[in-house]
């Protein structure tokens, strides 16, 4: 390991220790570490964007100009130039056009993403659980498969109806628990179970990072 590597390792160590100063209620060292992260990621991102997006997608095609379509090049150049107006005028309507275009594209992508990528697979997997071939094993009823299929359907519907919107007056009037209250309670059990499991997963991920960090410290001390 050369001196530069050692220096970088030391810098990383010092910055990460600054992060842990948060636990002592310190804001100065923690703030320095945080702004280092912000500045370094911003600098790196500028480089990546310029070299991997702007150069190959905007500048390089201009150098092959006669071979490519004039209108296509102009449109691409315009797409790149319009947001720059925001630097000069914060309320630039011209920049707003390109941002509006971007908004339209990402909204369309969101609609396709959630319908094609989330809703359809989730709904199909619920229905597929009712496939007769999954409900029997060697001609006999597969009770666990049957139970899971019905539990999935009932649970999903209960979770969906746990968020059913009620009118203010309707809620005040209903003193006795209605069927919707029962379904909401049932749905909340599943939401709680899911949140608990997710929480443990997140905690485990954090714990792994903590262990990796302690290992990093041990490695550093050994190296020293």
């Amino acid at each position: 390991m050369n001196n530069l590597d050692l220096l970088l390792l030391l810098a990383g160590l010092v910055l990460s220790l600054m992060v842990f100063s948060y636990l002592l209620g310190d804001t100065l060292l923690f703030g320095i570490a945080m702004y280092t992260l912000v500045g370094a990621t911003a600098g790196f991102t500028v480089l990546v964007l310029v070299q991997k997006v702007i150069m190959p997608m905007v500048i390089t095609p201009l150098t092959t100009f006669p071979k490519s379509s004039v209108w296509l090049e102009l449109a691409t150049l315009l797409a790149a130039l319009l947001p720059i107006f925001m630097i000069f005028k914060k309320s630039s309507r011209v920049a707003g056009i390109s941002l509006g275009f971007l908004g339209g594209v990402v909204t369309a992508a969101l609609i396709v993403g959630v319908s094609r990528g989330t809703l359809v697979p989730q709904l199909l997997s619920i229905v597929d659980a009712f496939d007769p071939s999954r409900m029997t094993t060697a001609g006999l009823p597969n009770w666990s498969g049957i139970f899971e299929a019905f539990m999935m359907l009932a649970g999903v519907l209960a979770v969906l109806f746990a968020f059913h919107h009620r009118k203010t007056k309707q809620k005040q009037d209903s003193l006795a628990p209605s069927w919707l209250d029962g379904l909401t309670g049932f749905g909340q059990i599943f939401i709680g179970i899911t949140f608990g499991a997710i929480f443990v997963g997140l905690f485990s991920t954090g714990l792994v990072a903590l262990i990796a960090y302690v290992q990093y410290l041990v490695d550093f001390v050994r190296l020293w």
Binding site: G12, L15, S16, V19, L23, A33
Partner: peptide, 11 residues
């Protein structure tokens, strides 16, 4: 190390 330390802090 900065991001790992933040993640550990999250735990």
């Amino acid at each position: 190390p900065l991001e790992n330390a933040l993640m550990a802090l999250v735990a």
